[in-house]
Design a protein around this nucleic acid. Sequence first.
RNA 1: GUGGCUGUAGCUCAGUUGGUUAGAGCUCCUGAUUGUGGUUCAGGAGGUCGUGGGUUCAAGUCCCAUCAGCCACCCCA
Length: 422
Amino acid sequence: MSQKIQPPKGTRDFYPADMAIQNHIFGAWRRVCARFGFQEYEGPSFEHLEMYTGKSGDEIVGQLYNFTDKGGRDIALRPEMTPTLARLANQLGRNLRKPARWFSLPRLWRYEKQQRGRLREFFQLNMDILGSDNVSADAELIAAACRICEELGLKSGDVVARISSRRLISTLLDELGCTDKPPVYLALDRREKLPREDFVKGLGEAGLTEDGIRRLDALFDAKSLAEVTDLVSSDDAKAALAELETLFQLLAAHGVADWCKFDPTVVRGLAYYTGVVYELFDAGRSLRAIAGGGRYDDLLSKMGGERMPAVGFGMGDVVIAELLKDKGLLPTGIPGPDLWLVSVDGDEIRQAAVAAKLRAAGKEVGFAFGGGKLGKQMQAAQENGAKRAVFVGSDRVAADQVEVKDLATGEQTVSTVEALCL
RNA sequence: GUGGCUGUAGCUCAGUUGGUUAGAGCUCCUGAUUGUGGUUCAGGAGGUCGUGGGUUCAAGUCCCAUCAGCCACCCCA
């Protein structure tokens, strides 16, 4: 047993039953994307290493699967899709029809220690809208993320989209005289984890006064947008707040208000977010984030293109599958053919001919090789997930007839191959 | 990268204070059922106890290392 080669750490094997689950999730992703008018794109599964180091610095290399190819090029398996998307968009330049609504289902790789909901190889739905400043685009994506959860059988009480705004925090920090924002974002992101004094100290070093820290606390403790109104005074901050209010009106119009909640503590560690940010979690918070995203208006220009407002989110396949499993919402068994031929007289020539005729008519047909006892053939029909058994070569019916048994109900009827082709 | 827990048949697990041929359920195979599956009954196959080393008269049971899994931290694109 130990001699057998195991799959590499953090990877998964997909047996038919696993693929059925995978296809269940992918199917929901594709259906909702289609309903929202998104178009699918793809890119290479590996890119130049600098595409990732340029954005996040060299320490990112520790989390990449990278290598030098035979031509001496530094290559990395893609750990995320957004840089590839940005590259594609920048290549198109002005030929990109805006706003573009694009989605992709990339397989991604990250060299990380695996845990529940986090593997080294996984899939992630990416939905992005390029070229729209409008908050309607933000709403569109949040609504899509909620609809995907719904499509998979989850209820609004199972999942909550926690929504905040980088812009709101940023403009408030301007008001408070903050000179160095990135460290503040980091501190805010860990507000619940850091000891209080470290939190206060960190903010103080970033130029915040005691009064400023008090106002930040008030923002982070706010349970609704209304509570924030009194906390902001600058025009910029008021505009950011108004944008959030519009967002929630739009989300209500989309019919996903029950799924969404204003939560100022959502900051997201990623530096490139500039506006609305959100994360979807299971209500019990027992798992990692199901999805996360936001507005990143400056990213494409930073990657060498022209300014291009953009919004997007990513939803991994691992966490959502865990949640569906916990909720008992995963399909069981393997998908089988509609029909399973059972040869009564052992005439495999005739069986093959019947199968060919049915298949030509578009029917799904399987059968056991080499015939065998009817009990065995019936068992094979069941094990292969067939819905109906078709007895071919029965002497109980006319030569051109077959007996058809519904495996779920046990009901058996007489028919003909021609009738089954319809 | 740091810390903790775990690793026994294909799967889920039980194995007393270290002591004769390592157990159960499920799965699988065969038969009851030579024209019909899912139920039931009977029988059978399948582990040297993750791997390597050490302690001991004796180790699945103790110690070390290593690999793998789980959990937390870190990180989270």
